[in-house]
């Protein structure tokens, strides 16, 4: 009767086990620092241009949308506050994570998936390397280091984007007021959730990508399937977790 639940529960169990093994390996020898650096370059540096772009436009569109709503109440001076809070709390972390999920969860899943179907992962085990240690842990660490940094960057650029719309373009407020407003409105609570979210999302993106990659079966078709699934599953979990984390922080 509950047979349809078997597969998701099994996947979840595999996820937890992989998460555990990958995390424990952070403190176990040997360390593959080189692999981690390469991944940080691929994930961090590789995602820079697109993060800057979406950061800028999400801030700009936020200010644009708010301009009308705020002018109804004669509160256009508050545009800095609104842009800063929405970006730092929600838009920055979630949009960056979704972008990196699309870019890198798929990249990781297809790379590991191809390795799986061409028996490279088996070969790795046969030649004395733990694939979790060599492939999963460096990706997890690289993601955990770079995603919060990318998010901070997206937030910053977003607030600048909002500024450009609010001050030079629409003249809603003055430069001093915008920055003062943006700066003062952010509390530790906002910063904390704004940094906790990318860290949790980094875990989700890296591990979902690796899990779907490692359990790929069925040749090249399987690799395609694994890639799609990884992006979809990672994106869904990003939304679920942003809700859960916000729920906790709202009451603090």
């Amino acid at each position: 009767m509950f047979d349809f639940l078997k597969s998701p529960i099994l996947t979840f169990q595999e996820f937890i086990s992989l998460a555990g093994r990958a995390t424990i390996n952070i403190v176990r020898r040997p360390f593959y620092a080189n692999d981690m650096m390469i991944q940080m370059d691929v994930i961090g540096v590789g995602s820079l241009p697109i993060t800057v772009l979406i950061g800028f436009f999400s801030g700009a569109v936020m200010a644009l949308q708010m301009s009308r709503a705020l002018s109804q109440y004669g509160a256009t001076g508050q545009v800095g506050q609104i842009t800063a809070i929405t970006l730092v709390r929600e838009m920055g972390p979630v949009l960056t994570a979704l972008l990196v999920a699309g870019r890198n969860a798929s990249g990781i899943a297809s790379e590991l998936g191809s390795m799986k179907v061409t028996e490279q992962i088996d070969a790795m085990r046969a030649l004395g390397t733990d694939p979790v240690k060599k492939l999963v842990t460096p990706r997890l660490l690289a993601m955990c280091c770079t995603l919060p940094l990318l998010t901070i960057l997206a937030d910053m650029i977003g607030i600048i984007g909002g500024f450009i719309v609010a001050v030079p373009m629409l003249r809603l407020t003055t430069t001093e007021q915008y920055w003062n407003n943006a700066w003062r409105s952010l509390e530790y609570n906002d910063i904390a959730q704004g940094l906790l979210k990318p860290l949790v999302f980094a875990f989700i993106i890296a591990l979902v990508g690796c899990l779907y990659g490692i359990r790929t079966t069925g040749g090249t078709q399987g690799v395609g399937r694994a890639t799609t699934q990884a992006v979809v599953v990672a994106s869904v979990w990003i939304f679920v977790f942003t809700f859960l984390i916000t729920r906790v922080f709202v009451n603090l």
């Binding site: 490279q120 088996d122 070969a123 790795m124 046969a126």
Partner: peptide, 9 residues
């Protein structure tokens, strides 16, 4: 072990 297709990295 030699893998099918070689299994090279």
């Amino acid at each position: 072990m030699l893998f099918q297709e070689g299994g090279l990295f």
